[in-house]
Amino acid sequence: MNDWLTGLPKAELHLHIEGTLTPHQQFALATRNGVTLPYDDAEALQAAYEFDDLSSFLALYYQGMNVLLTRADFYDLAMAYFERAAADGVRHVDLSFDPQAHVSRGVALADVFEGLRQARQDAAARLDVSSALIMSFMRDRDADDAMTTFKAAAPWHHHLSAIGLDSAEVGNPPEKFTAVFERARAIGLPRVAHAGEEGGPEYVRGALDALDVCRIDHGVRAMEDDTLIERLRTTQTPLTVCPLSNLYLKGVADLADHNLPLMLEAGLNVNINSDDPAYFGGGMVNNFAACVAAFDWDRETCRTVAANGIRDAFMPESRRAALLLELARYE
């Protein structure tokens, strides 16, 4: 089954490029940039990846970013991910990044954008992996900082396919960021937001109503509200569910307890993604394989979920049509 899953054409819609930074990459970049890490080696760092919740993960996540300092670092980070994704049968990626986490460390915004831009260009040419760029704001920071970052990124707005909202959810409701999302809407940028990961259904509703998002990242706790379930079913709002992420962050004790099958049974528009694959058990094939094992998914279910991802990704319609045809022909 894993060989079939590898060949299955897939799009990844919920991927934080900083979350693809493997322990070995961290140490290689630390050596290159003269950064000291608080671990003896990559194996010791990997062993630290035991998370109690989202907050405990974010502490290591932001610590790891300290090795990303130059344009070459962002290029190498993204290209390493694209190569792994291509080997996993990923044909398109909606790639999110957190500019605030880099600018606050003194990294030039131009180096972040240009490193990622070059990697995206090379991945399309060398690997036939297309991509879209989502600039995410960190919801545990002040909303004014998000607006400042959005304005500072103006020279690169034409490279963006959307803006997003991520990081610690509880206590940082979507309504906090209404102004910057309205600014993005005014210039025609689509909006997505993390909601319903650790926060309840009200965070999903807030993202839909206050931020006018076209896609919900995670969204699993929407299943606690029947009215919201019906709304999501009727609108077919895409939900970018990340099964292994939910497991590693203790959203569920066992993947078999995940409500993903119930989401599909309710007629919700669900796709699956790896979120931060370096921290959460691997990439797209690992996530699909875990669902096959936990939920006894057959090939048609996997094909349906993969089609949802391709249909709802930010990509040119010609590319979408080609990938959907490739998927339909895949045996």
Rank of each mutant, 00 (worst) to 15 (best):
Y49R: 13
T149L: 15
A152N: 01
A123K: 00
P316N: 02
G283C: 03
I229L: 07
F314N: 00
A162Y: 04
A44W: 03
V213Q: 14
D296L: 07
Y75S: 06
A86Y: 07
L247T: 10
Y279Q: 02
I272V: 09
L60S: 09
D209V: 08
V129C: 01
K250E: 15
S104G: 05
L228P: 10
I17G: 03
G115P: 02
E175V: 14
D166K: 08
A266R: 09
A222K: 07
D142R: 08
Y248A: 13
D111K: 00
A152L: 10
P23W: 01
M1T: 04
R205L: 08
E50R: 14
G283D: 07
M263G: 07
R117I: 11
N271H: 13
L262T: 14
L255E: 08
A207K: 10
S131I: 05
A80H: 09
V107A: 00
L15M: 11
N286D: 15
R185W: 11
E197L: 03
A293K: 11
T6F: 03
G64R: 06
L160M: 09
D140H: 09
A266G: 07
F181G: 06
R233G: 15
I134T: 12
L29C: 02
V112M: 00
R141K: 07
N66G: 06
F295A: 12
N271V: 01
A85Q: 05
L45D: 10
Y75V: 05
Q46Y: 05
L29Q: 07
V252S: 12
D226H: 09
G283V: 10
D40L: 12
Y81C: 04
G309Q: 04
D254P: 02
M1D: 06
L37G: 12
V292E: 15
R117N: 13
E114W: 01
M79H: 12
S161Y: 12
V270K: 03
